[in-house]
Design a protein around this nucleic acid. Structure first.
Length: 323
DNA sequence: AAGTAGCGCAACCGCTTCCAC
DNA sequence: AGTGGAAGCGGTTGCGCTACT
């Protein structure tokens, strides 16, 4: 308490990031790796607070981020994990390595919450007030202890199923058809590349429109077809800066896209301390929770446990997912 | 065509947790 | 063990876009 916010400093820029800032940040992280965020503004000259740099990197520029529509599988996983973990978005995001916690949080708040409300009527599963109301498992007062425990096991079982599906090779490899078209993989490199290509190469629709407004840039991010105008000198500088920044990521991205391949040590090391594990990594060190979930699931599948409430819960989820 | 309500999402804010000293 | 600073996390906001009237 009492400590002034890091962004209160005079001269610290706020609001949407510009392509120039993105390039500076990306090229810095390419050289030094993520982490030590406090040093980033000082070393790069960016007029941003460390938090803002970290956020921009983790939510937008980081390689391997999947953007676009959430697949049915992802939706399912989020729903199950939200029921189990509550609004612990970072934890949930760790099971969807290509999605950021911010994305998941936004998706939950804008889509899933409403869907669940519609489809489950009185059933309070929306997690609107954090984990305390996410499901009956966290509200033992309203049910008997025995019931509560069974509900807990039900949720565990559902989460286990979601995890099994999520971590199965079929899911990871995105079977041809449905999921694939809905979700294009756009790495940060591609994001910026497209952005800048459009910016630098496309002839401006209106020669008088000069991009100086950060908000315009932000929106153009969402609409890659939009043209950009800049003077040639800037184009050259940005092109060079970007290409040099890009260089280090290309091999990372390509290795990342092929999940069965291992990364070369040098490139991988840049991202070793990333909070978001690659899919491969997420499979290796199974957390206690995951182990626990799988163990429970295995036991349950052998009929060692009695899940009297499973059917009703599964039906709820099925009816929801069916819509 | 103009106004506006709703939506989606990037970014910010403030609290908590972690870690080094 | 206590303290201060950095990083992480979740809630919230702001703004542009789109659909509807």
């Amino acid at each position: 308490m009492g400590r002034p916010p890091c962004c209160d400093k005079i001269g610290v820029k706020k609001g949407p990031w510009t392509p120039e800032e993105d390039i500076i940040l990306v090229s810095y992280i390419q050289q030094h790796g993520p982490g030590n965020w406090r040093a980033v503004p000082t070393n790069t000259g960016l007029l941003r607070c460390s938090k803002s740099c970290r956020l921009r990197w983790t939510n937008y520029l980081r390689p391997g981020i999947k953007r676009g529509n959430f697949t049915g599988h992802e939706e399912k996983i989020i729903i199950h994990l939200q029921a189990l973990l509550g609004n612990r978005w970072a934890a949930i995001a760790s099971y969807l390595p290509e999605r950021t916690d911010n994305d998941i949080k936004n998706y939950w708040n804008t889509h899933l919450k409403k869907k669940l409300k519609k489809n489950q009527g009185g059933h309070s599963r929306d997690g609107s007030s954090s984990s305390t109301t996410t499901s009956s498992l966290t509200n033992p007062d309203s049910v008997s202890r025995g019931q509560w425990e069974r509900r807990l096991q039900t949720d565990i079982q559902m989460a286990k199923q979601a995890l099994s599906e999520a971590l199965s090779p079929e899911f990871i490899q995105q079977p041809a058809g449905q999921e694939h078209q809905a979700s294009t993989y756009i790495s940060s490199t591609e994001n910026i590349a497209k952005l800048l290509q459009g910016w630098m190469k496309d002839p401006p629709k209106s020669s008088s429109s000069i991009v100086t407004d950060d908000h315009q840039y932000s929106q153009k991010n969402k609409n890659p077809k939009t043209n950009y105008t800049k003077d040639e000198k800037n184009e050259m500088e940005l092109s060079e800066a970007f290409e040099s920044a890009l260089y280090g990521f290309e091999s990372f991205d390509s290795s990342n896209s092929d999940l069965s391949q291992s990364q070369s040590p040098g490139e991988a090391s840049i991202f070793q301390d990333e909070s978001k594990p690659s899919i491969n990594n997420s499979q290796e060190p199974l957390s206690l929770l995951e182990k626990w979930l799988f163990d429970e699931g295995a036991a349950a599948s052998q009929g060692k446990d009695c899940f009297s409430d499973i059917k009703s819960d599964e039906n709820n989820v099925k009816s929801f997912l069916g819509n």
